[in-house]
């Protein structure tokens, strides 16, 4: 990247759109100006001035990479996650090839396009730091060529002659501070952009969290609750889903039943051994407080339950 603040001169020349820019650029190169110090600015793409461009942009490669990443994501979604929880539906195989194809196609396209776009934006922003003065006459149909010189004595004059020869209708030197100001403006734009995106994100968030409704909050659900009478404390339901047996149970059976209930309802936090090391425990705020009685030796918890 060119350091635009070094002590040198920058010449800025305006041409008609039909000026032979390509020939001019070649002549400037012969005069010893490196290509990256010549900038051609135009209101529309000049396909013949491509000499000034840096080496080829790896956009195609990035697009391909994005596409392949997309295929991987699609495969993971449609095939991978289906294998984690193999739920059969309607006789379709768990991993259905046509479906995987469709889903992968969409994710491939999505990532390919987005990658291309992001890469392009990055390249554009990097390109804009070349920092050249923008003249409103460019938009009205002129081509500008700006040449940066690193302070040789004769160079400016020689370059100016070349520019004139090519038909420039205006040539002016550009002050360094002008150039730098442009860069700062770019910074401002970046900050404004940040605020804009933050605002959009806040809007999106608020729209997501606007509404919530649940069956539990509905009157219809409470009407179901109302007629249920509470049974006296300590009583055992006779016909509910709770597991009650009329046959006498041995302590071993009770223990086994208890283990089963424990495994269904408690293990997540309390852990398989009651050690407070279940997979969910880490997410609880005061999990040590919760699990302490189970970890001490004098707790009433049957440690023999380990099996």
């Amino acid at each position: 990247m060119v350091d635009v603040t070094n002590n040198g001169t920058t010449l800025f020349a305006l041409f008609e759109l039909s000026a032979p820019v390509k020939a001019l650029v070649e002549k400037l190169q012969q005069a010893g100006i490196p290509l990256e110090r010549i900038e051609v600015i135009s209101p529309l793409p000049l396909h013949d001035a491509r000499v000034t461009s840096p080496p080829r942009i790896p956009l195609y490669a990035l697009t391909m990479t994005g596409g392949f990443a997309g295929i991987a994501v699609g495969l993971f979604f449609a095939a991978g996650t289906a294998l984690f929880y193999p739920i059969m539906t309607g006789g379709k195989p768990v991993v259905a090839p046509p479906v995987v194809g469709i889903v992968s196609f969409e994710t491939m396209m999505l990532l390919a396009i987005v990658t291309t776009f992001v890469a392009m934006v990055i390249r554009l922003r990097r390109g804009s730091r070349h920092a050249v003065v923008r003249d409103s006459r460019i938009d009205d149909g002129a081509v500008a060529v700006s040449v940066q010189m690193d302070g040789g004595d004769t160079q400016p004059a020689a370059v100016e002659a070349l520019l004139r020869e090519a038909g420039a209708f205006e040539i002016k030197p550009v002050r360094k501070d002008r150039v730098r100001m442009r860069r700062d403006a770019g910074k401002d734009a970046e900050q404004e952009g940040l605020w804009l995106w933050l605002g959009c994100a806040a809007l999106a968030l608020s729209s997501i969290t606007a509404y919530s409704r649940d069956m539990e909050e509905q009157a219809s659900y409470q009407s179901q609750e109302a007629p249920r009478r509470h049974s006296p404390p300590g009583s055992i339901p006779l016909t509910s889903r709770a597991i009650v047996s009329s046959a006498p149970v041995t302590p071993d059976e009770q223990l086994a039943a208890g283990t089963r209930v424990f495994r269904i309802n408690c293990v997540h936090c309390h852990g398989p051994e009651g050690g407070g090391d279940g997979p969910v425990a880490g997410y609880l705020r005061d999990y040590r407080k919760i699990c302490r009685p189970l970890m001490s030796n004098d707790s009433p918890w049957p440690l023999s339950m380990r099996s």
Partner: peptide, 9 residues
């Protein structure tokens, strides 16, 4: 209402 069956919303 049957307490064993969810009321659908």
């Amino acid at each position: 209402l049957n307490p064993d069956v969810t009321v659908r919303q």
